[in-house]
Amino acid sequence: MKHWIFFLVLFGNSLMAQKSFILGATLGNEPVQCGKWVVNKQNDSLQVNRCAMYLSNLQFFENGKPLTAPEKPILINFCNGAFEFKQVPQNADSVTFSVGIDSLIQTAGAMGGDLDPVNGMYWTWQSGYIHVKVEAQTSLLASELHSIVCHLGGYSAPFNTNRMKGFKLNDKMLYRLNLDQFLAAESFTTVRKIMSPSLLATKLSDAFIDSISPVR
């Protein structure tokens, strides 16, 4: 719990001033610091070097009725800190969002801003945005470089990796991507390099969205 005080100090200042939705990533139960080695509960040393994702269709509701329009895709680079969305309606009681880019945007051609391919979140060998990029090293894996390279993408059946999530809003409105939980996904025990749309990528997308939860 003490680590979450640190987390709140880092990312929760604005809670006092205005209503914000905050999503941060944690490793070893602390806010992730890319490039820093962390020892987890299983005594595995982990270092996350890259952690980014597209958050799409962020939308707030009251009693099931939408209070806001779905937001455009936002590129979150957790290596730069937590994501904070400051325009949460005062009376909002729930939120939904998806991780990934929907097929309409995927097939619409070149785009700018967060969707500009210069951000390194677009595959070059085939068309499609990379929805999630997690690159990490661990002391326990027997792979050549003890590394995990996880680039999740794919927008059409049977390898659609878009995933939707919804929460009842609590007072804190603080959410976390638990990287310890995600990197412990069963799929990583056999394959450590996932860089194309595939059945494995869809399973890991399930694991990724399951790793996002409210901070209690």
């Binding site: 051609g109 070059t124 060998w125 085939q126």
Partner: peptide
């Protein structure tokens, strides 16, 4: 057919 839009086609040779 790896590339589904002309706008994105140039990314492949630029990066390969």
């Amino acid at each position: 057919g790896a590339i589904h839009h002309l706008d994105m086609q140039a990314l492949a040779p630029i990066s390969h």
